[in-house]
Design a protein around this nucleic acid. Structure first.
Lengths: 338, 338
DNA sequence: CTGAAAGCGCTAACAG
DNA sequence: CTGTTAGCGCTTTCAG
């Protein structure tokens, strides 16, 4: 590997001067700088990121914690979070930061997430995880590391969230406007976001003079087709079958559609169906599923912006960003004639 | 940040002894070691990865190049490659390696992929990319960096590939056995893998005494729904409409199903359909799409194993791993009555 | 404008 | 068994 000493030798100056020239310091003679630059290029010089990090206390490296537990879809293959990460990645890379996954193993040692961050000296960390009350996550959250969280709300950490209340309200109102009264919401496991959505659901029913009953709320599991399948059957076998079902997300809605079909019921003639997230899958299924699109691209960008801002200004203050949602009408809902 | 010097001071020994104790060197007194270890824990010591990398010439960091160009699906959100990466990640992390994405920006500088690798001193790189003849990829390939490639075959680099020949042979034979003769293969853009698949397709037809015509091969684009849509319409409007269509992958097959439906044709009654890859989407669509499942989990693991082996043994010799495929019968193919 | 020197945190001989 | 010392490659005062 070529070092600044090698260049210094060739040019006939000191390593300090080489360093300055390479880093665009003003106090280097124009000619010397050019000689240094051209030699650096010719010799195929690349700065050593580790050495730079050691002196500069900046690694240009962001830690990524995308561990979607409690699902069969972990981080990368999670249709929803993968989109967010993709957009986050595009933005941070453009700004010169590299992305590295946080893990529980470093070399031969088992480490906590925070220890991993301390070892690698990540400039910041982005978190998107269902298990937000996990002890190791909390340890990270309470550290002094620049952090941005997606889909959750801690007291002290900046977060990026879709307007979930608006999302479920739009969906519920849409169904009510289609004359549905008996709507069941098979929501995901309880969490900050889930509770907001449930509130929006109940509030909207109430606002429309519909008394919400507990039969209308069923706890499922986000992105878990098996649990959802069971819950769907359960609902369909009721004496008073609902006229519409809202699923926790588009992925399980797509499987719910199958369950409904197997029961010999038609969508939307016999039962209307809606999902959430705005996944491509919702469009691929027949009939196209009505859903609420979360703007994953914007979520990713906002998260990246906020995190880089914290890193570069050292201003850790909590700033929450809310990203708008949009009702996407498919072919899975129909006016209820009752 | 706590350093080994801080520990040395507390314990009353030299930093060298601390280093040895921490790294399990045998030549440290049992008592001293214990004192050091307990102080290290108490003080919340974490080794500095940058400093370690500087002296050890090992970063425990693997570079990831998953840039699926020429598609609307880039790296992470690519249904197929995301699965491979997921599995690769699980294995490498278990072995203590961190994964960092390769990019073209490092800090404030624009860099080539190789330059990026040199800066960060990645121990190795994993590549999965459609644009395998890209100049920057080739530069990497021809360097001395430990590399494993997925879905391509270079002269000097280890690669992991599904048995694509077998895959398309299974599929073609299956359709032939269902009495189909006029089968169209809308394949992906030309590449190492595509050509193998095309050969398998043509060979299998020939072996069954069917003369393959050039009308049976249409070039589409992997994971591109628009191009596929056009090609599908083109095929369906022919005077001699084929009785079966094989799509380049399950994703576009799912969209192809829509196109066929829009033309008022039924699957599989009017036309049989097959995909490739074994994506979950193939199961979610109605009718379930017959496909060839690639074992993404095994591909990821094999890639990880091979790469770590190259890194740790410094044996760069080219070893290719072939991973078996499996025909998955859906409901999208039917015996042709003709 | 240039360079000597100290230091970032850790490891690896080599003495003792 | 322990410590001294010399780096790893780069940055940053501070003299000159």
């Amino acid at each position: 590997m070529v070092t600044i000493y090698d260049i210094a030798k060739k040019v006939g100056c000191s390593s300090a001067t080489v360093s300055k020239a390479l880093n665009n310091y003003p106090d280097v003679n124009h000619k010397t700088r050019n000689r240094i630059l051209s030699f650096a290029k010719e010799m195929g010089y690349s700065p050593n990121a580790q050495a730079q990090a050691l002196t500069k206390k900046k690694t240009w490296n962001i830690g990524v914690l995308f561990e979607v537990e409690a699902t069969n879809k972990t981080g990368l293959t999670h249709y929803f979070f993968a989109q967010i990460l993709e957009s986050f990645k595009a933005y941070t890379e453009e700004k010169g930061y590299d992305l590295t996954f946080l893990s529980k193993k470093a070399g031969n040692d088992n480490v906590s997430f925070l220890q991993h961050v301390r070892r690698r000296h990540f400039d910041g960390v982005i978190i998107a995880n269902f298990d937000y009350e996990n002890e190791e996550i909390l340890e990270l959250i309470h550290s002094n590391v620049p952090i941005v969280v997606i889909d959750y709300n801690y007291d002290t950490v900046s977060s990026i969230l879709s307007d979930n209340y608006e999302g479920l309200k739009l969906l519920t109102q849409y169904l009510i406007d289609l004359n549905h009264r008996d709507i069941v919401y098979i929501h995901g496991q309880h969490s900050y976001v889930t509770d907001i959505r449930i509130n929006a659901f109940v509030d909207t029913l109430t606002e429309n003079g519909i008394a919400a009953t507990k039969e209308q709320l069923l706890e499922g599991l986000y992105y878990d087709k098996d649990v959802t399948y069971q819950k769907t059957l359960e609902v369909l076998q009721r004496a008073n079958r609902p006229t519409a079902i809202i699923f926790s997300d588009d992925y399980v809605a797509a499987w719910g559609v199958r369950a409904i079909g197997k029961m010999g019921l038609r969508i939307p003639e016999d039962v209307s169906v809606a999902g959430f997230d705005g996944l491509e899958i919702a469009e691929m299924i027949t009939p196209r599923i009505t859903t609420v699109r979360q703007n994953t691209e914007l979520i990713g960008i906002q998260a990246a912006k906020r995190l880089i801002d914290i890193i570069e200004t050292k201003n850790h203050s909590k700033i929450d960003v809310h990203v708008g949602v949009e009702l996407v009408k498919g072919k899975s809902c129909k006016k209820h004639e009752g």
